[in-house]
């Protein structure tokens, strides 16, 4: 595989649109970006004069802050719009919001939205490059990229890694983006969750699907835990969180069957005692804080690479 020299699209809508060379390009660029975070003056003039709009229609703290920090470190001018207090709550459609923003000539729009495909809708309306910061249950591409950067840093490679992803597979955009990225880069992915939370058609993505966490974790190089939301009980998905932890929670005992140098990841925010035991979350395996640091670098890389593309 050869590393790409550019991204083919002006947008980052999902990992589905990236080939392995483009993924390597983003990760390599992120490695260079990461050094900036170690400097006394953590700022470079790369996006000076560029405007980036952060359009967050869904509550998000870590992703929004991570994007904001990435934008500021690249010297972009940033504006944030969150749903509370915006015209969105006054019944304006996404298309109209997009057209209004368009009139302010932003270069890039970062969007988080509860409906799958919203960034795609935006990309058909706006001239600006669109960055998907999580759409519904579809994709969260920068999360998968920062996860991949973390794995590559710790393991030196992605190809051939055994990666177990455990949790709510049905509603997780993190799962989809990670599966697409990891299978594309040659990793072996095992997806594990309760049968009620496994989407039909997941196997078709080239993933080993199981309802046994022990099977998923055995000899794994990486164990990635997904957040389980309390409201899943009301959709008849789960009888109780207690039972969920008993069957699917990651404990030191379960982790003992993984590879000896296993790393444990979580996209956050964690539910301690639901999907992950505190002893695991805070243990030597945990790379959860690396993920946060890498998030800023990956987002800087994505913004930098997309900002170079001609506005048409």
């Amino acid at each position: 595989m050869t590393v790409a020299t550019r991204l083919r699209s002006r947008h980052l809508l999902g990992i589905a649109d990236l080939d392995p060379g483009e993924i390597e390009l983003i990760l390599d660029t992120a490695v260079a970006m990461k050094e900036i975070g170690t400097r006394t003056i953590k700022k470079v003039p790369a996006l000076r004069g560029r405007t980036v709009v952060n359009l967050f229609f869904e509550a998000s703290t870590r992703t929004r802050l991570s994007f904001e920090l990435a934008e500021k470190r690249l010297s972009a001018d940033t504006m944030g719009i969150t749903t509370a207090g915006s015209s969105v709550t006054k019944g304006e459609t996404l298309a109209d919001t997009a057209r209004t923003l368009e009139a302010m000539s932003p270069d890039l729009i970062v969007i988080r939205h509860a409906a799958s495909g919203s960034p795609h809708l935006l990309s058909t309306i706006c001239k600006a490059g669109i960055v998907n910061a999580g759409d519904g249950t579809h994709e969260h591409p920068t999360q998968a990229l920062l996860d991949a950067l973390t794995m590559r840093e710790r393991k030196g490679r992605l190809a051939g890694l055994k990666v177990a992803i455990v949790g709510d597979l049905l509603h997780s955009r993190v799962l989809r983006s990670n599966v697409l990225l990891l299978t594309r880069m040659g990793a072996e992915v095992r997806a594990c969750g309760p049968a009620t939370l496994i989407p039909l058609g997941l196997k078709a993505l080239g993933v080993h699907v199981t309802t046994s966490i022990d099977e998923a974790v055995k000899d794994a190089d990486v164990v990635m835990m997904l957040r389980v939301q309390h409201e899943r009980m009301y959709g008849l998905f789960l009888p109780s969180l207690r039972e969920y932890f008993n069957l699917f929670g990651l404990t030191p005992a379960r982790l003992a069957h993984a590879a000896s140098d296993v790393i444990v990841m979580h996209p956050g925010p964690m539910n301690r005692g639901v999907e992950i035991d505190s002893a695991v979350a805070d243990g030597p395996w945990s790379v959860i804080l690396d993920q946060v640091a890498n998030g800023v670098a990956v987002r800087m890389a994505v913004l930098y690479l997309l900002a170079g593309e001609e506005l048409t």
Partner: peptide, 21 residues
Amino acid sequence: KGDGVAHEGAVAALLGLRGIP
């Protein structure tokens, strides 16, 4: 049907759309 918006299958799984079997 619930709040499904697309056929429940591989495509809906990939696109993150809630399925109607």
